[in-house]
Computed example of a mutant assay.
Amino acid sequence: MERTKSVDLPVLYFGTPVALITTVDPNGSSNISPISSAWALGDRYMLGLGAEGQALANLRHVGELVINLPSSDLAAAVEAIAPTTGRTPVPAEKRPAYRHEPDKWSVGGFTKVASVDVLPPRIGECPVQIEARVVQLVDIDGGSAVAVEAEVVRVHAFEGILKVTESDRIDTEKWNPLYYSFRHYFAQGARVGANFRAPLLDQPIVVA
């Protein structure tokens, strides 16, 4: 067993999928926010957002969003909008690393696709697009960040990542999400095993 050492890490980004959050302001203008703090539990998605970002400002006024999950081949597009913010003027804590950009769609080369149940548009290039509504906003870290609990109302997925025999199941051999680890982007590696409950997701549920 290898020896350990106590470390003071500047961030705890050990590895999570990248999500592109689309929101709208009261005037209908849309914004895209790349985030690395996103996870699902049941029909809920939990998101971590900076308190001064445009995404949170939009969600406080219009509590609807789309959680777009990019594939690994979209890393360059995600990074193209990473140093931009929809806020103007740029918040002091984001200067000088960020610049204001009112049209992140063009910068990232993304296509707007109308959602079905929520106001914000989906990102057409992302293989998974999750429409959701805010359930609650919880201040964390002394108010410098906010945890967003969102209820999923509809999921869209590219047909190419679905199982051929079961269209309501993701084919994990075809789904290649973009990961973020210590501010570096990674593609998904080879499968090294499966949880004992994997068949519950791989096979259709039979109702007697």
Rank of each mutant, 00 (worst) to 15 (best):
V107H: 02
G108K: 03
G109V: 08
G109H: 07
G109F: 06
T111L: 06
K112W: 08
V113N: 05
V113A: 09
V113D: 03
V113E: 11
A114L: 06
V116H: 03
V116A: 12
D117K: 14
L119H: 10
L119Y: 06
P121K: 00
R122H: 09
I123T: 01
I123F: 02
G124L: 08
G124S: 10
G124E: 12
E125G: 11
E125R: 11
C126Q: 07
C126R: 06
C126W: 04
C126H: 04
C126E: 05
C126G: 03
C126N: 09
V128W: 01
I130Q: 02
I130C: 00
I130H: 01
E131A: 00
E131W: 01
A132T: 01
A132F: 00
R133D: 03
R133W: 01
V134M: 03
V134W: 00
V135C: 04
V135T: 14
L137V: 06
V138I: 12
V138F: 01
V138R: 02
D139E: 15
D139T: 10
I140M: 13
D141K: 13
G142Y: 10
G142K: 10
G143M: 07
G143I: 08
G143V: 08
G143E: 09
G143P: 07
A145M: 05
V146P: 02
V146E: 08
A147M: 15
V148C: 12
V148S: 12
V148E: 07
V148H: 09
E151S: 12
E151D: 12
V152D: 06
V152M: 14
V152C: 07
V153N: 03
V155L: 04
V155W: 02
H156K: 01
E159W: 01
G160K: 13
G160Q: 14
L162I: 00
L162H: 00
L162F: 00
K163A: 08
K163M: 15
T165V: 10
S167Q: 12
S167H: 11
S167T: 11
D168T: 10
D168K: 12
R169T: 15
R169I: 14
R169A: 15
I170P: 04
I170Y: 05
I170R: 08
D171W: 00
E173M: 13
K174T: 08
W175N: 07
N176E: 15
P177Q: 06
L178H: 04
Y179T: 01
H184V: 13
F186D: 01
F186V: 00
F186E: 00
A187K: 15
A190K: 09
R191Y: 05
V192A: 12
G193C: 09
G193Q: 08
G193F: 10
R197A: 10
P199K: 06
L200Q: 13
L200E: 15
L201C: 08
D202M: 11
D202F: 04
Q203E: 15
P204G: 05
P204E: 02
I205W: 12
I205N: 07
I205F: 14
V206Y: 08
